[in-house]
């Protein structure tokens, strides 16, 4: 706990990941983000929460954003103090009515057996969920979660 370490410890840490919108990359994205957040020393449940929320956002980008076309999805993660911020961005079709899309059980793809619970899961497992979207421009989902486990904080 030397004072020379203080600036290091309060520094932010960031990563950015870009990958094809193929469903086989969903597992890869979950593993990458959970590996990145281990520096916060989260509980297994906290990791599972973030993985589930991330999986919902990435699946949305693949199914709804790009409607199956193979293009790029970008994930940005930032750690500030004990909070992890996860951003999932696509440049797909976008959402005309975000409030409607976030209603539980609402889905535009019922025939594909979508449960309509993606955003509900994100909201249940993260502290905050913000959706910025415009038709034809794409969608950016920004989620944050404070990792409460405070022992053995990230030290380099």
């Amino acid at each position: 706990m030397g004072s020379s370490m203080d600036t290091e410890k309060s520094a932010e840490n960031e990563m950015k990941l870009e990958f094809d919108s193929r469903s086989c990359n969903e597992g890869f994205a979950r593993v990458a983000v959970s590996a990145f957040m281990t520096q916060l020393n989260p509980t297994l449940e906290e990791v599972a929460d973030v993985k589930t929320a991330l999986s919902e956002a990435v699946t949305n980008a693949i199914i709804h954003g790009y409607e199956g076309r193979v293009e790029k999805i970008v994930i940005r993660c930032r750690i500030v103090e004990q909070t992890i911020l996860v951003e999932v961005e696509d440049h797909g079709v976008g959402i005309a009515d975000v409030a409607k899309a976030m209603e539980p059980l609402f889905t535009t793809k019922e025939d594909c057996e979508r449960a309509g619970m993606g955003f509900s899961f994100m909201e249940a497992f993260m502290d905050t969920v913000q959706v910025d979207s415009a038709p034809g421009k794409g969608t950016r989902v920004t989620m944050t979660k404070k990792i409460l486990h405070t022992e053995n904080r990230y030290e380099r």
Binding site: E56, S120, F121
Partner: peptide
């Protein structure tokens, strides 16, 4: 050990 809402959709279907 992991399931998201896609799994729920599959079971529901």
């Amino acid at each position: 050990v992991f399931m998201d809402s896609s799994g729920i959709g599959m079971i529901m279907g």
